[in-house]
């Protein structure tokens, strides 16, 4: 495993974070050292162990199907950096 500059650029793209090129090399180094450190997990034999997601031992609760929420457009868009006519607004997307 070695994260290089181009991996940093790729991951930054996936994460939608601008990392200026000048910082990519340094970040690659940091990520490498963190990844190198977590790789000690490889020492452990985890065969037959199911991956764990939640510590909560219960069934997923469910709600009754009823309209109990929504109809609060003012609250929904109150914090929007840009909105118009009740919509959120973003730079035009070309599909």
């Amino acid at each position: 495993m070695a994260v290089d500059k181009s991996t940093v650029a790729h991951i930054a793209k996936l994460a939608c974070i601008r990392i200026p090129e000048a910082q990519q090399e340094a970040l690659a180094g940091e990520l490498n050292s963190i990844l190198g450190w977590v790789e000690q997990l490889g020492e452990l034999d985890t065969q037959g162990i199911a991956p764990m997601t939640s510590v909560v031992e219960m069934r997923l609760p469910k709600r009754v199907d009823a309209v109990t929420d929504g109809d609060c457009r003012d609250k929904v868009i109150a914090n929007a950096p840009e909105s118009a006519h009740g919509f959120f607004s973003v730079p035009k997307v070309v599909e």
């Binding site: 309209v67 929504g70 609060c72 929904v76």
Partner: peptide, 26 residues
Amino acid sequence: AESKLFSGAATAFGAEPNTQVSLVDA
């Protein structure tokens, strides 16, 4: 269904924009 998969906002067709949106949906 009356409401959404993970929130209690309505699902009816043709409502005014962002009026069937809960804080969870947003």
